[in-house]
Design a protein around this nucleic acid. Structure first.
Lengths: 129, 129, 129, 129
DNA sequence: GTGGTCTAGACCACA
DNA sequence: GTGGTCTAGACCACG
């Protein structure tokens, strides 16, 4: 599983990491129950600080995406997660902002569908992991 | 036009303000070419810092939603705005994150459609502005 | 409100801090809605690192004891907190360990009651805060 | 005597083991003077690391619960143990934390009594050891 | 080996 | 001014 971080992006590194990991899970490059690289090794590999990786992992545990064992983190084996109330509220707000921007900037249904399809193509299971 | 700010929300106040204004434009409570309240008066009315209002206005000008005149700000009279490249990229990222979260948290198409409809209902033109 | 930290204790500093703050709330030295010192100032006052204070505050927010505003932390104004399931389970385990130790070390009911009373005396509202 | 370890619990394995053994003594499944399984065999039986069992045994010796012989460990034949000063201090702190949490989270006397009774029921002597 | 805790210090976002 | 993010590096607990 490849993880690419853009150090100069506006989105915090730990957020980028969170979505890269979720991405890996969706693409089945990371399977339920599978262990993740240790905070230190991953940090070393992608050239960021250990604490940043740790924060991402911890937040994913809080969301229910990862689970923490005595020894390291793993993908939650029971991936039937539900959003909690707070997260759902947040999701709605983000959706609302997208819809507002679409209207203000006259994005057509088609162009949005196109983007959406392009994105979903990148989320498909790859044959070789 | 009513502007409601939640001071203790996680979303920064200037962001909330930006979307409230966009919202007003979509609902035609603010018309193209119409002037906005002065930074100072708006800040006073809704009880927030002057700099915060200023930041929101400036960013809206950057996006092309507002125009800055000699004296004050107005809604861009030519509301055929296109997103610039940077904003479009940002939009795509936000959409991507929503799609990823939907898949990870097993949101159904239905529940998303429902949310979407509810939101769009709040964006309809109101009879009295 | 006085906060005393024992740097060489086995209990982590942030845990000590958490209980000191809860203590302050119980003794009504900290009232619902009241603001807490900034992470940096408190850290400076008691001679520990900012991040340690921050961790304690964050955990207290998670427990529902504190609330976080745009600007700083405050005691949750609606202090009708309930333990969540996980915390309740943890509480039960801690109680179980105490009961087991009491039996193994032949602590009498009286001596426990005595300790308990002594502790509760230190938790009473003080006249001057 | 059954020992059940939850490898993914938050409480360290050696702590769990300590309380399982104390539990066995209270339930008279382990009698004063009785020998304990060897470090190696117990570790093998419950599938944990040898060092972990050893740590638990050593700590129990320190507390006076177990005694170490030439060959192996046994339950202290003189089970009229008293807590040493350090342990008593620790006990008091743990009690204090429980009392503080009970007040902060509005636990009723009843619910605590209920928990307490449930726990004590699990500590009764069983007919067959 | 793993994560947890703590420190010191930097720069940024927000109001 | 506030907290948020990120870094670098140390020592400890656990298994």
């Amino acid at each position: 599983m490849y993880i690419r971080i853009q150090p100069n992006s506006e989105t915090p590194i730990y957020t980028q990491l969170i979505y890269q990991i979720k991405r890996g899970i969706i693409k089945k490059e990371l399977l339920p129950g599978e262990g993740l690289p240790s905070v230190r090794s991953l940090a070393g590999d992608i050239g960021i600080n250990m604490h940043t990786v740790n924060k991402a992992y911890k937040l994913l545990v809080e969301e229910g995406v990862l689970a923490q064992q005595k020894k390291g983190f793993m993908v939650n084996p029971n991936l039937m997660i539900e959003m909690n109330q707070k997260y759902l509220h947040n999701y709605r707000e983000r959706l609302e902002e997208l819809l507002i921007d679409a209207k203000i900037f006259n994005l057509t249904e088609e162009s949005i569908s196109k983007m959406r399809n392009e994105i979903e193509n990148t989320l498909k299971e790859s044959d070789k992991s």
